[in-house]
Nucleic acid binder design. Structure first.
Lengths: 153, 153
DNA sequence: CATTATGATTTAGCTAGGCTAACTAACTAT
DNA sequence: ATAGTTAGTTAGCCTAGCTAAATCATAATG
């Protein structure tokens, strides 16, 4: 086996760290940090949902999503509405401004990536695209949250 | 063009966020966070270097690398030695324990990834590997950093 | 030798994104 | 009604980024 999973794991880990640091540069100064962009894009493309749903989708805990959304809300990018069916719950949706802002951030990252991708071949880009989709499919899904061996104990 | 760079950019962004959150789970409770692992692996695989060199390689500022290294140091994973040639500088190297710990963290992530990669094909893994290498080549290197005022300002 | 500039590192203080623990409020089921 | 569960929040802690400014060593110059 020329390709050991451990090596792939490490390379992916490293690549993800460095890529995010890079993209953070492009996103910074807009108030649109990666976590916020990610959460906002769920609302923009996936439509309204509750806090807990968003937390589950994003793979973070309730307090984290609360604070994330508070930030988005205070920037006027997200609005909350009481769930008529369940008065504990809150329904979130992206505001007009939030939707625009997301497009904007997207455009920013495109520019940043274009600088990086200058030297990438179309094949390379295709490879990256496949990987991104693959990772989402493997990692995004909520399951395996409890079934992943906890390792610690 | 079926594959728009903007879409690839966004998918990569999202994938990196979600992947890191996932791997953080595996790394957590060991004190080995992604940033620390990344820095440590530079020392383990790249050999000793100074703080500034490490900062440059990791693409972070001097204060950030200082604190990162302080953490590693207080865990006994990294040791410092005065540079005999330049008494301002400090040379870092991974301790025996640091090297072992890195292997350990690697093993942990492998296990976590294996859970995720269960359903991935060998081809998929190969794609991920190619992408990781590609990203490092495109994003890791310091150049193209000129547009942002950096350390050397 | 004194001065000044440069360079490596650290300190202080800010923001954001994670977490757990512990709480309130509302729903569900008995 | 009372017990348990679920949605969301608050408080408090940690790491990871950053900038600005301090410290101290070396280098360059007069």
């Amino acid at each position: 086996m020329a390709l050991r999973k451990g090596d792939v794991a490490n390379r992916l880990h490293s690549a993800a760290i460095h890529l995010l640091r890079r993209l953070r540069e492009a996103d910074s100064k807009t108030g649109m940090t990666p976590a916020r962009l990610s959460a906002l894009s769920v609302l923009v493309f996936g439509g309204p949902c509750t806090l807990s749903e968003l937390a589950k989708i994003e793979g973070v805990t309730a307090p984290t999503i609360t604070r994330l959304v508070q930030g988005l809300e205070s920037d006027g990018l997200v609005v909350r509405r009481d769930d008529p069916a369940d008065r504990r719950a809150v329904i979130l949706r992206a505001s007009k401004r939030g939707t625009e802002m997301l497009q904007d951030g997207r455009a920013r990252r495109v520019k940043a990536l274009e600088a990086l991708l200058e030297s990438a071949t179309p094949t390379g880009i295709q490879t990256l695209d496949r990987s991104a989709r693959l990772i989402e499919k493997l990692a995004l899904h909520p399951h395996s949250r409890s079934d992943v061996p906890r390792l610690s104990k």
